[in-house]
Design a protein around this nucleic acid. Structure first.
Lengths: 335, 335
DNA sequence: CTGAAAGCGCTTACAG
DNA sequence: CTGAAAGCGCTTACAG
């Protein structure tokens, strides 16, 4: 393969000059720079990343790990999220390393390998949990990271926060206006911070609307359509079933729609169903799904941008950005 | 950060021995090895990847680029695929670098950066096109890669092939048995090899069933639900509309289902709709979607495994694995 | 079984 | 504006 030496030899100049010309330093004559750039292109030269990383002591790479419990879950989420991260990173000549951990153990192995081994300069986390060990490890190591969501006990890292309190209030007022008053929620694993937040928003909104809040209608599922289906089926078979089912994400809502169809219910009329995230497919369900839309691509970009600032030691103007979901009313809630 | 020197100093041995103990060489005494392993764990030592890569002249990383045209398309595909790749790779202590290119130009930039810069040891490609420039570049550079699908002009790289001819024959026989005989197809961009293959399979199957093949019922869309919706709407407004619509993937079929609902059609009775891929969500549409299921996770694993063999210079027993989709008959085709 | 030493390909003070 | 040289942290012949 072509190295910096080859380029230097071809042009009869030093490797120092080649390196400086390519990296855009100002103290290289315009003519020399152009010759170097041309030669590099013709010879197919691109600096060896490992050598560069070793010398610069940074990898120009950031990492994202799909947590253990998320394998094959929450699929549209993942694509949007990775696209958003990649978009920001490539603009800054950073690369994105991705892994899917199938257990906490494996995830921990990746952290060790990537962080202690300097394979990445920073990490982006999502799906925070109560007492999240990842946050503890990263904080202790003083390793740069950003998160989607935040843990209650700390705010020492830049993060993007989703605040659904207002949007849920609107949603529940809308439900109430259409006569849906017995409201259930299909959430995720209880340790998930996001689950706890959603329950809180919904509870508050229900009470603010003067409706009864029934804790028995709060269930945990696994963030995918299968689990949404079976959990919704349970709800529909209660002696006093709900007339509205809110879901922690759109995937879960897809399963819920299917369960309601299987029960012969007229969705939007006899029962209301809503999702969260506003994924693309939600427009095309039968009936179209009411959902709380969040700009996942933009959020991921933001997390990447904040992380790069942090890595480069730049002060952040804001280290907490709050996103308010946008209520998209569609036919699944009678809208 | 902890380096190999720190570990060596702590144990009063040479860095040579530390390196050999950690990498599992046999010529280290069991006792020394254990001491080294323990010290490394306690001190939080993991070999600097850049130094290791530079010395070994390999990155222990492979790359996957989501092609330009695929941004935010085909979402469930991406998750399954990346999960499958990551699963195999991590088992072999390889990492996965991912990028989403938003243009051919940008994609080319990544190839240059990653390959000439030795950032990755191999690449996995999907969505092959006619005269695919990526294949040309990689072949010319003698750079290891594997592909999902293959180009007609070459077979010099290991690949996984999907052969839908048999499954489509079964599907069309099934349609015929239920009285659906005017069959349309919503494909993808015409340059996509996969599109061309699907058209061929469908055409052959239709003719083998003694049905008329109408080229006007073959349309191109963009592999997502929106595009499926609008393209299906066009089909349904023809003076002689089809009574069956096959789709290049499940996403497109989701949009098609929605369009059929919007036209007030009784799906499975007045019109049949089928997808391709067998993504998770296809079970939960209304009605559930008939689809040709392929094991995407397994396919990705296979592609990663073949690539690693290639990288390590091992001879491959097989460099072409053919997958036959499995017809899942559900209510959307009256099944 | 263990260690001293070379060298992977860069970037960057430093000198001129 | 350009170049000679050091050194990033490893792995691996090689010697003992």
């Amino acid at each position: 393969m072509t190295t910096i030496k080859d380029v230097a030899k071809t042009l009869n100049i030093s490797i120092t000059t080649v390196s400086r010309a390519l990296d855009g330093y100002s103290d290289v004559s315009a003519e020399t720079r152009q010759r170097v750039i041309d030669a590099a292109r013709i010879m197919g030269y691109s600096p060896n990343r490992a050598a560069r990383q070793l010398r610069k002591q940074k990898s120009e790479t950031i990492g994202f790990i799909l947590p253990a419990s998320a394998l094959r879950f929450d699929e549209p989420f993942f694509t949007e999220f990775v696209s958003g991260l990649g978009d920001s990173l490539s603009r800054n000549n950073y690369d994105l390393l991705v892994a899917n951990a199938t257990s906490d153990e494996q995830e921990c192995y990746f952290y060790n390998r990537w962080i202690n081994g300097h394979k990445v300069d920073g990490m982006v986390l999502n799906r925070l949990q109560v007492n999240d060990w990842r946050i503890k490890i990263l904080t202790d190591a003083r390793f740069p990271f950003t998160t989607l969501g935040k843990t209650p006990d700390s705010k020492e890292y830049p993060h993007v926060l989703v605040d659904g309190s207002q949007a849920y209030l609107e949603l529940i007022q809308h439900l109430q206006a259409h006569g849906f008053t017995r409201i259930a929620f299909i959430g995720g694993p209880p340790r998930l911070i996001n689950h706890q937040n959603q329950v809180q928003w919904i509870k508050t909104a229900i009470q603010n609307c003067g409706l009864p809040f029934d804790p028995e209608l709060i269930l945990s599922a696994e963030l995918n359509s299968s689990s949404g289906y079976s959990t919704a089926s349970q709800l529909l078979e209660l002696s006093k079933p709900p007339d509205a089912i809110l879901c922690i994400n759109d995937e879960t809502a897809f399963g819920t729609l299917s369960a309601a169809h299987a029960h012969g219910l007229n969705i939007g009329k006899e029962i209301a169903i809503a999702g969260f995230d506003g994924v693309h497919e939600s427009r095309f369900t039968e009936p179209p799904l009411t959902t709380l839309d969040i700009p996942l691509f933009d959020i991921a970009q933001l997390l990447a941008d904040m992380l790069l600032e942090k890595i480069n030691g730049n002060p952040l103007e804001v280290d907490e950005v709050t996103i308010h979901p946008n209520l998209l009313v569609r036919a699944s809630t009678g809208g």
